[in-house]
Nucleic acid binder design. Sequence first.
DNA 1: GTGGTCTAGACCACG
DNA 2: GTGGTCTAGACCACC
Lengths: 128, 128, 128, 128
Amino acid sequence: MLLTVDANDKRPIYQQIVDGVKALIARGDLQEGTPLPTVRQVAGDLRVNLNTIAVAYRQLQDEGFLSVRHGAGTVVSIRPGRSIETEDLRKPLRPALTELILTGLSDEAIAGIVRQELKALRLKGDRR
Amino acid sequence: MLLTVDANDKRPIYQQIVDGVKALIARGDLQEGTPLPTVRQVAGDLRVNLNTIAVAYRQLQDEGFLSVRHGAGTVVSIRPGRSIETEDLRKPLRPALTELILTGLSDEAIAGIVRQELKALRLKGDRR
Amino acid sequence: MLLTVDANDKRPIYQQIVDGVKALIARGDLQEGTPLPTVRQVAGDLRVNLNTIAVAYRQLQDEGFLSVRHGAGTVVSIRPGRSIETEDLRKPLRPALTELILTGLSDEAIAGIVRQELKALRLKGDRR
Amino acid sequence: MLLTVDANDKRPIYQQIVDGVKALIARGDLQEGTPLPTVRQVAGDLRVNLNTIAVAYRQLQDEGFLSVRHGAGTVVSIRPGRSIETEDLRKPLRPALTELILTGLSDEAIAGIVRQELKALRLKGDRR
DNA sequence: GTGGTCTAGACCACG
DNA sequence: GTGGTCTAGACCACC
């Protein structure tokens, strides 16, 4: 698996897992139907508590990104389970963009950074 | 008062205050030297405990956005408190952009949304 | 416990904790990865309120000396949080040195005192 | 007068005044018998509250550095009014030295910095 | 169990 | 009157 957890990251571990899986799906590394490692295996690899991984998988399932087939493991499922409002998608962008503005960067410079990040997030197979 | 707190927001109250003040500075509503309302006043307006506001003001001071004079008030102070690395500014962007990608939006569409948000975050003069 | 608080000390309690932990790190008693006692334990040992210790730990985290994991404990983490300018390190020296000068001590005598203090502040190995 | 106050300094204003006068005495710019400007004048020059300067003068008087002659103003008085224990002089040195140690500087390097500072504090007539 | 946040209320230091 | 600190006690998020 390409997942990692960073102790210095301010996000809780379960959130890092959730975001990590989403990133892998977004870039195409994980496709519809791809089986995911078991909770136990991820927990062992990342040296993290079992419950933490279970919470992450549970949230991914709630959001419709994972499909749990009883006795047959977990597979990726692209169809989102809950409807998303664009406002909810824009909100988390704002504090991040505000920080960039406060460093004195121009709108063009910030747009350039965003374009770089988008490119990096879509580069299939780009192991961090 | 230009600050608000939203009970539904997942960020803690003090963080909402911090982000709110930064946004006001970024858009030019608060300029260098502008006095801020007292801790007690903000606390009263927002129906929030005194200490919560004090924590927010303290963090803003640590980051160099406020200059707090003990018995006197608080004023905006743009000087950078700690140097920020661009990597630290890019990281919070990624989960937000990933969510946008997962909705199926194209890079162009996402860049358009970012441009809209940047425009909204700037008020007085779109400088640069 | 190696930490103490002195009611006669003019520094606030949380600052004494911060300085105390830094001193333990500087002398090598606390090394990278060493777990720190929990907030509750320190609070109990020193007969001080929980929040006061939490404030100290938080400041140490902001300065990059501690890595706090939410549900897990706290460990020492030497990585620098913010870059420090030498000028900021020299300033607090000046009032202290001025007081020594005013007692009539020679530069050599003062330098001797400083050397003594440096020796006392280092324990494990006087490296370098 | 050569006194200044810095809003960004963490010390309270009255303490900056106290330290400033002591520094001027230590470097010889103010000598025994030298008259000091009135509280009112200093307050006006520094654009600071009258009471703040009065508190500073009061503390300097308590420590024996100022002598107030009723109706004849205030003059410098080198004989310290209260006995000083060396331990009390060493204590404020420690947090400052600890910070220097934590940056990784060697004892020699730190001693060098101290020597530089001592030299600067003694340079008569060196306007900051 | 851990740390994080918030409240209510108190007292002190500063200007 | 301002901000700074501290307490006691509560509830929540995380592991």
